[in-house]
């Protein structure tokens, strides 16, 4: 009786027991093959990291190779900028001059934006190379190396000179949304380099104020330079010098001791109040 019951039960449960087994073999068609694969993988495990590293090296070489081609094309394209502007046409002509088909301009999805970016980076690098050779000044806490900064800004501005006629277009290209980040990045690295090489070693909030102030001065000077027709850009030079003086004045005012400045501030406030009330005796 009990045996019969167990047989019946086993038959009943059979579906449950056999079912999963069957489903395993059905759902896992790799079955036996997977074993052999695993063994192969075990054997292959040792060389795997090696192949990965060589692959990444290959990728590095590939990207480097691609970069070189791109820079070569961009460099040649700069020669065509005075004629055809910061445009895809310049890139095509540049590609042709570098010995590639004109269609290679497809490497630069941003078109003129990439060309302007390349030009900015190239100029920044040249400026850094030059600044390294300039004499270092003995710096005290309070003095601003205004001569150094003025020279740096003027040197950088004069690098635009060959492309001065087309530069307004380049500035417009830089303000397009997809180029803004590149433009800001090059501007920040420019002012950072100027500050560093002029001897700025601040580690507090001055780090930010100096760089932002310098970026403002540089951009203002760039705008001024576009309409400057004086020989040797003398007007731009004096413009830059006076902007640096302004910045120095602001810095001096910010560093002023509040207690020492109190009488001046009070007098100024008093005079202003008198002017507002119309009882200024000095009229």
């Amino acid at each position: 009786m009990s045996r019969l019951q167990t047989i019946i039960r086993s038959l009943k449960n059979g579906r449950r027991i056999i079912g999963p087994i069957a489903s395993i073999s059905v759902n896992n068609p790799h079955g036996i093959r997977s074993y052999s694969q695993m063994e192969v993988q075990k054997d292959a495990k040792l060389p795997v990291p090696l192949t990965i590293s060589t692959q990444s090296e290959h990728e590095n070489e590939d990207t480097k190779y691609e970069e070189n081609i791109k820079n070569n094309i961009l460099n040649h394209a700069l020669d065509f900028v005075p004629k055809s502007g910061w445009s895809v046409e310049s890139l095509s002509s540049g590609a042709k001059a570098a010995g590639y088909p004109t269609i290679t301009h497809g490497l630069f999805p941003n078109g003129g934006g990439d060309l302007v970016h390349y030009f900015n980076i190239k100029c920044n690098e040249q400026l850094v190379e030059q600044m390294k050779t300039w004499p270092k000044m003995e710096l005290k806490e309070s003095t601003v190396p205004s001569q150094f900064i003025e020279n740096a800004i003027m040197t950088r501005l004069l690098m635009i000179d060959p492309y001065k006629i087309t530069w307004p277009k380049a500035m417009a290209i830089q303000t397009m949304p997809n180029n803004v980040s590149n433009c800001l990045a090059t501007l920040l690295s420019l002012v950072d380099d100027i500050c560093y090489h002029s001897g700025d070693r601040s580690v507090d909030f001055n780090w930010y104020t100096r760089r932002v102030g310098l970026a403002g001065i540089y951009k203002a000077a760039e705008l001024f330079y576009l309409t400057d027709s004086t020989p040797n850009s003398g007007a731009t030079r004096s413009f830059v010098a006076s902007r640096i003086r302004d910045a120095q004045l602001i810095q001096a005012a910010l560093n002023l001791n509040p207690v020492a400045a109190a009488p001046q501030t009070l007098t100024a406030a008093f005079t202003t109040a008198k002017n507002i009330l119309g009882i200024n005796t000095l009229k």
């Binding site: 980076i121 690098e125 980040s181 590149n182 990045a185 920040l188 950072d192 380099d193």
Partner: peptide
């Protein structure tokens, strides 16, 4: 993040 990456790439000290 990508912007910071660009800043770094554009930074002239990151040369070879």
């Amino acid at each position: 993040r990508s912007f910071l990456q660009q800043v770094r790439c554009a930074h002239s000290t990151v040369t070879e």
